[in-house]
Design a protein around this nucleic acid. Structure first.
Lengths: 112, 112
DNA sequence: TGCATTGTTGCCATATTTAGAAACAATTAC
DNA sequence: GTAATTGTTTCTAAATATGGCAACAATGCA
């Protein structure tokens, strides 16, 4: 195996990889509020424009956002609304997992 | 900024990072079918047990799976059902995004 | 006890990712 | 045209992730 089924997951992994950076998640949230250009995003989150551009490029390559040129500006807007649910689900997953873990620890103490 | 809001996204990013590898997505799918031990998973996907153990460790750290010792075996089972939706959503996102992109290209050709 | 099975961890070499600065490209305004 | 603004690309160094192997730990069995 190792190739047979693996191919099916590489595309999925690419999307998760695009989401696997706190700065990109922050940028996504900013863009979700309203479309923004690179310079505005870079200033808001306090990073260099080249770094912002590269992060946005990755999000675009994953099909999560889209760009539109307006003069010298390049405005990015959200393409996949599903992403928001992804992020929310991720957060919920953390909370649930921790609660379960805590409950289990407590339960074990009581039982054993 | 750069610290102010970023912290909120680091935990989310950790989850996405755990999902950002095709092998780990494959392992998750196997575990989703039914709980399995490390050696079975490693054999099924064709990787070394140490590599499998490390991947599973990452999934566990992200709160996505949980382990349970059974003699010399360590059985892993799915902890966050939300993850499955995450993966499905990721796949749908790809398809939708590509269709939109194709439609846009076609549209641009027609219009312009 | 001695041995086999199962998992985890440590180590190493390699590959990928990232940030920052500078160079470069594209557009607008003068 | 020239300068200014905005983005992208390139290059480099540092950080991180990955796979494979060996060493080690834990459990079960004879």
């Amino acid at each position: 195996m190792k190739d047979q089924s693996l191919g099916r997951y590489e595309l999925k992994a690419e999307i998760f990889k695009a989401l696997a950076h706190p700065m990109r998640l922050l940028l996504l949230d900013k863009i979700k509020e309203r479309p923004r250009c690179v310079c505005e995003l870079a200033a808001e989150v306090g990073i260099d424009k080249s770094v912002a551009s590269k992060h946005l490029s990755q999000l675009k390559a994953a099909g999560l956002i889209e760009d539109e040129k307006r003069g010298t500006l390049v405005e990015y807007h959200l393409l996949a609304p599903c992403v928001l649910e992804l992020a929310a689900c991720a957060e919920a997953t953390i909370v649930e997992s921790r609660q379960k873990r805590l409950a289990m620890i407590t339960g074990k103490k009581r039982v054993g």
